[in-house]
Each structure stands twice: as C-alpha cells, then as structure tokens.
Design a protein around this nucleic acid. Sequence first.
DNA 1: GAGCGGTTGTTAAAATCCTCACATTTCAGG
DNA 2: CCTGAAATGTGAGGATTTTAACAACCGCTC
Lengths: 243, 243
Amino acid sequence: MTARKAQRTARLIDLLSQRRVIHLSEAAALLGVSEMTVRRDIATNQGQIAYLGGHILAAAEIDTDTPYELATAADSHAAAKREACAHAVRKIRPDETIFVDCGTTLIHLIDLIPDNYQITAICYAMNVAERLSRKPNVTIIMLGGVYHPASASFSGTHDFDILKSVGINAAFLSAAGVDAKRGATCEHFHEAVVKQKVMSVARENYLVIDSSKIGKLKRAFFSGMDGFDAVITEHGEAGPGSF
Amino acid sequence: MTARKAQRTARLIDLLSQRRVIHLSEAAALLGVSEMTVRRDIATNQGQIAYLGGHILAAAEIDTDTPYELATAADSHAAAKREACAHAVRKIRPDETIFVDCGTTLIHLIDLIPDNYQITAICYAMNVAERLSRKPNVTIIMLGGVYHPASASFSGTHDFDILKSVGINAAFLSAAGVDAKRGATCEHFHEAVVKQKVMSVARENYLVIDSSKIGKLKRAFFSGMDGFDAVITEHGEAGPGSF
DNA sequence: GAGCGGTTGTTAAAATCCTCACATTTCAGG
DNA sequence: CCTGAAATGTGAGGATTTTAACAACCGCTC
C-alpha cells in the first residue's frame, strides 16, 4: 500500500465522520480519483469502510451494537417530554393552525398528532420542519431568516411579516428554564424574539416542558408565567399561577 | 395504513434490530410479499427504515441524515450534475453572498465549495439548508413560507422582504427543462416566482444543469435564456446565446 | 534507461436496481 | 352482497452498479 493510497483512505474515513453516507461517484470526485480506485480502496479496508449498493458508509455504522439507545439517550428526559406532549396534543383540534417551537421537546408533539388531522403548523427550526414534513395532511409554514446552528433555528426581523398573515389557534412553546420569579427563559436571545412575537399573535399559548426545567434560569427571557394559558409537564396541565 | 401493512413494517423493523442490513429481495421473501411492496413500506416509513441501493437498514444507523440524503443518493444524472457544479463553483469568491436554488443539482455545488471560504448562502429548500448547515464558515439565510413537499422548498410573498435587505453576488439557478425557444422552465409555479425574484436582484445569474435537461419543456416558465450570464453544464460554460 | 510490480484509468458487457404504468386483489362501509 | 379506495403484484424500460479485462502510469531497482 503506497503512501498515496493510505492518505486517500484516511481522507475518505474523515469524510465519513462528517457525512455518514457518501455516494461512490461523489467520493471519487471529492478524492480526485476514478470510481474504480475508490472501489479498490474500500475492498482493502473492509474493517473500517462499508459499502452498500453504490453508497459508502463507516463500517462502525453497521457493526457496533444498537445505536438506537444512543440516539434517544442524546435527548435527555425524552420519556418525560413525550409524556408532556401526550397531554399537550389534546389541545389540538383536527383543522387548526398551531405554532411549534424549536428544541427537542416538541418533536414528540408532532409525532403524536393524529395522521388524519389537517393542521397547519408554523415553525422556525429545521429539525421541526423536517419532522413535520414526514407527516401527512400537514401544511408547513417556515419562518425564515439567518441560521443559528446551536438550535437549528432561523431568526430575523422579516419573521414578523409572515406572522401578520396567519391566525394561530395554539402556540406550543418550549423553554430551557422556568423560574417562579423570572418566568420562562431560553438559551439564545434570537429565539426569545421569535417566541415573544408569536405569543403576541397566538390565541392560546401553552408552555410544554419536562419538570427538570423547573427552577432553572437561563440567559434569554421571553415571557412571565402569566403569559401562558397553561403549563404542561409530564404530570399534566397546570395553571400559570402554580409557579 | 392497514393493520396488515403496519404489522409487516413492525416485523421488518424487528428483523433489522437483529440483522442490521437486509437485502431487498431477502426481506420480500421473509415477509412473503413482493419487492415492490417492501419498497413502498420503506417509502412510507423513512423515519425508521433507511434504504440504500437495494439494502435495507435501520434509520438510526445513518441517523441525523434526513431522507434528503437518500434522495440525493438516488439522484439521476448525478455524475453530470456534479461535473457541472465543478465548473460553477469557480464563479464563487471566498467572501461572497450566493443564492442556491432548490433541487438536487446544486447540492453538489455546496459540497464543492472550499471549507475556508466565508460565504453567505441564501436558499429556500430544506435539503439545501440542511446540506449548507454541515459546512463550516457558512452563514445561511432561509427564505421561509409555505412548504412544498415535491421540491422540499418553501414559497410565499414574504420572501421578497428578505431579498431586499441582502446583496447577492451570484445566483445559481437550476431548471427542469431548457428550451431554445421558450427558455428555462421548472415543475412548479411557486418555484418560478422565487427564481424570478432572485434573478432580478442578483448581480450575476448562472443556470447550472446537466445536459439531459436541454430540449425539455416543463410547465412553469421562469426566464428566457438571455436572463442568464452563463449556462453551465457538465461540458463547461456556454453563453446564453448558444441555445 | 530498461525492467518490474503495484497502482490507476478506461472500456464494455452483464447484473442489478429504480420508476412508472397498469392490472389485480384486498378491505372496510354501505 | 356491493362498491370504491387502498394495497399489492407485474412487467417493461431506463438508469445505475458490478465485474472483468486490458492499457497506461508510477516509483523503484538494476
């Protein structure tokens, strides 16, 4: 094995750590060699590189034991979040327009909406939009803007133009911290701006959190507790006065 | 979804938890249905089941990769598109603002942009934004609006407000058809509206297509050939007059 | 510079996979 | 039992992937 070949293989593995799946022809272009050469590289490195029908992926992906748990474990308090969302989903009627905040909590809400509901969902985070797009009968409206990687969300002044032209029946908000005195807070200021603007136009505002958030205070304030029609946790629904 | 189909899907997922990778033909035999049916089952369960060139695997294996990744992988004329983009990427300077159209073609352009370039990219399709978000040093601006599943893109009147406040050095447009007489066309009217608006504010407009598009005519017209500063295919760059 | 093994690119044919359209079957309500 | 919608099977055609053979190239030694 020449130095050139070894280096090329290392580069391919490096690419896989970022991309998970790379098509053969794409890898060939990226590495500046022919497809045949990439094939041969893979054949001599079956331990690290896996190959399936034209697609290259890290061998670890299909070797190591169940990454399922890992994926769900990355989302802490997933069970509590899902339960809170199970309570929250009852607020949605079959033909309403809702707002879905960013974060991991409300992803569960989306999954729990019955497939036959014809809802319109407004969002501003990419992971939320992506999950919504998998559901049937959902009209998705994305508030655009500048991308913020930390929360996979978009923000900007223009958001507000869209909000003027839609009627939101219920807004489902998430928070990173809920404090009795200071109210609901999140990690990023740009998120807080969007949340506030949405809350000002939505008919009903629900804060959906798992109870681990209670007592915490984060840097970006977006609403006092009296701004919510209800606070929904895994234990059920509580009036805003209980905090 | 019938009970039978749901049960079959559950069985398939169960198989995947033991086997990691199952070939399409084997799954069809194991489940006692045709390969076509297994394909369709997978298509309606992209969240849990992933599919790569004839092989079925648990979606968790290639986690965080949205279904778009798979869409790109199954992309036809992928090699020609990538070559066209290799020509197109030379139009980008290290600190510019560009527009990236929707579709599968320009995904390759994104991959080919050098990592050390500090560019700002404007887009209106989810798969494009998703791919952009993986690159370092890129500022992403998303034009929001109503979601259109066919092209994973968003559209709406409000797009135009954002466009007023940015300066676009180069817009990279794609098309589903290019006709000598009628010019550039695409599948959906809502896309055409966005393309036209972008072209009116961008300093330079490049049409990037693989040559299979030439001679085709689709329903939504968005620009005559003289609207482009250049047409870029896998064979290189051509002036707009050559069509 | 000639010779050598290992590496790489190019082609063509075969096998496989994908998409689409249409025929058939199944299933839930009336 | 009838009926329409959903689900399923089938086959053709096109696109992609695989394999194999052969030619060209590289770095090295003699």
